[in-house]
Design a protein around this nucleic acid. Structure first.
Lengths: 344, 344
DNA sequence: ATCCAAAATGCAAGCGCTTACATTGCTACA
DNA sequence: TGTAGCAATGTAAGCGCTTGCATTTTGGAT
């Protein structure tokens, strides 16, 4: 073996005085090899600094021990946190993670799914259910198993998530129970985003239950960013009938709204109640603390990984893993003001 | 072709009435093929829903169009954010990203580096310089190019980072300029973490410059978590000579410290000044805003990706890309209290 | 000692793709 | 019309590994 060439299975076999088959078995099914041989082989592997060639392995075994994940963005703590535990679980199983992000764009998501399939991902993690049919086509055609997280998928799809509609409904009920009637939402863009849409839907349901005209619900859709939430808040508060409570689609929006409300001289929650969704760190750092829906992101990541691994191995999985959410009361939601609040 | 089998190059070739070589060229070097042929081939690809087999491709071409990144954790906005732009840049170049995390553990990092090399990563992104020699061994042996981010590497290493020592020194100078003399640090664990160590070093340098005994500098090392910072703060403030300013190793610690300080009834910055490092979202959400070192994480991610891609393609790269940091004044650093503050 | 089943090992055929080299089919010019 | 020269395409040899099957070895049981 040329000193500069990377050692291959053949070299190890020669060094150890066995066949390539035995070396391969040593590495992949050590139980099938005598301790003595295994020892000799391992020593040779060590001596030569052998690392299996990925392409060869993937080609011969028709699997990559790699799974992919397509997230809207990593730049939001909820996905980063979920991904972290997802990755840890995979890593413990000897599987590596391919990461792609779509920037909340359906076209980009299609592309990324395709790319991951092309990279030989044995399975894929997807966020939410709303995407164009083409994406599901690729997956089906490639026979690549996938798991949907953050939402509950349709029948026949495997998913690990929580009830976005129900959780938002519950939060809205609390808001209503505090006496609020003029309620608004700052939501993420609902187009092609079932989680954002579900949260709006949940709020609508609660309003209907309470006999509040849902046509009156003002929903201001913005991208998930502090500033955007701040601007939405200003828009909402400068209406003729400003809300007394604003339900935000997630914590980034909630915190952004609180920050701007304070800048405008509004006191939260006595002038205006604000709620969030997710329960990320900043929800407990901001003042007042953001009352929000706690979502078990880490557990979701772990469960998603376990489910996906099972799917890949052909082990049975429960089609749906439904995680519980709870409401964290931190102070940003309070009773509706008694009289009419002056406009800012 | 069996209707259930995945189509392969052969199938496409047959369908289009050309050889596999031509199909391959169509896909990889379209310029080398007549428009008419290309058309016919593409139509066949489309009709069959062909996707190249990753293993085959990797084996034959000896590259994977894949790069890896080993981060301490994704569960810190700075890494998540940097990784996001890193990934975007790669994706634009048709390269996919393998992600692994070490949990700030050197053994785990070794493992992960090995795993990524084993997965055929064409290049690897590493955070910081402190790791055991074995890790560099693997990289060298596998001849896998790598880029170090977040720090400046040694000569011969390619890195994209900033001056941790200098930035911390600058911050400490500011603190000293505000009249503080009893200064403490809440630092990340410095063992095998050159960034954390560098920040401590920077503070020491500034103290020396100012003629302050560095032996007096109390450094409380904790893991990067709000609560840990809170506890460190309590420890520091219950000393006989509590500090009037605490320089924190990053924003997570800084925000955790501010939160605990407020709980203890301390007013920041009039009773106690606190500074951070990184400039993540929460630094501007907490009250008072955290005076901190702004690090251009996104630009770092992008630059790291560009550098790594160049390295892989054998294009020339500048060994070191040094990014500027700036100090963001947000209010948590103020003048040292005139008299002695009562202990909490 | 002998024989046999079971365990360990070896042999060699692919896995699906790229690419060096050979071949074919043009164009253009004499 | 013949042919040099080049572009387009085809041929086929690997790339490094896994694995079904054949072969050898092992360790009892007789």
């Amino acid at each position: 073996m040329d000193a500069f060439a990377k050692p291959k299975l053949d070299d190890v076999a020669r060094e150890a005085g066995v066949s390539t088959a035995t070396v391969s078995r040593c590495l992949n099914e050590p139980g099938k090899v005598t301790a003595a041989t295994r020892d000799r082989v391992m020593r040779a592997v060590e001596a030569l600094g052998y690392t299996p060639n990925f392409g060869g392995k993937a080609l011969a075994s028709q699997k990559t021990s790699t799974v992919g994940a397509v997230l809207p963005t990593l730049d939001n703590a909820i996905f980063a946190r979920g991904l972290q535990s997802f990755q840890e679980t995979l890593s413990a199983a000897g599987v590596t993670l391919l990461v792609a992000s779509s920037g909340y764009d359906a076209d980009r998501e299609d592309e990324q799914i395709r790319a991951l399939i092309g990279r030989g991902a044995d399975g894929i993690l997807l966020i939410g259910t709303a995407r164009r049919p083409a994406a599901y086509e690729f997956l089906k055609r490639a026979r690549t198993p996938y798991v949907i997280a953050w939402s509950i998928g349709e029948a026949g799809e495997t998913s690990v998530g929580f009830d976005n509609v129900g959780a938002a409904r519950e939060m809205a009920r609390r808001v209503i129970a505090e006496g609020h009637r003029r309620i608004a939402m700052i939501s993420g863009i609902t187009h092609m985003n079932d989680r954002a849409a579900g949260r709006v839907e949940g709020v609508c349901q609660a309003l209907r239950e309470a006999g509040i005209e849902t046509a009156d619900l003002v929903v201001d859709e913005v991208r998930y960013a502090f500033d955007e939430a701040g601007e939405a808040l200003e828009r909402l508060m400068s209406r003729n009938d400003p809300p007394t409570a604003i339900i935000c689609g997630n914590d980034v929006l909630g915190v952004g709204a609180i920050a701007r409300a304070k800048q405008l001289g509004l006191v939260v929650p006595s002038d205006l109640s604000i709620t969030g969704f997710d329960d990320i760190d900043i929800a407990s750092i901001v003042e007042p603390g953001l009352t929000t829906v706690h979502v078990p992101h880490r557990r979701m990541g772990t469960a998603a990984a376990e489910t996906l691994l099972a799917l890949i191995d052909g082990r049975p999985v429960s089609e749906t893993v439904l995680l519980e959410t709870t409401i964290c009361d931190r102070g940003s939601l309070g009773p509706a003001p008694a009289g009419n609040r002056p406009r800012p």
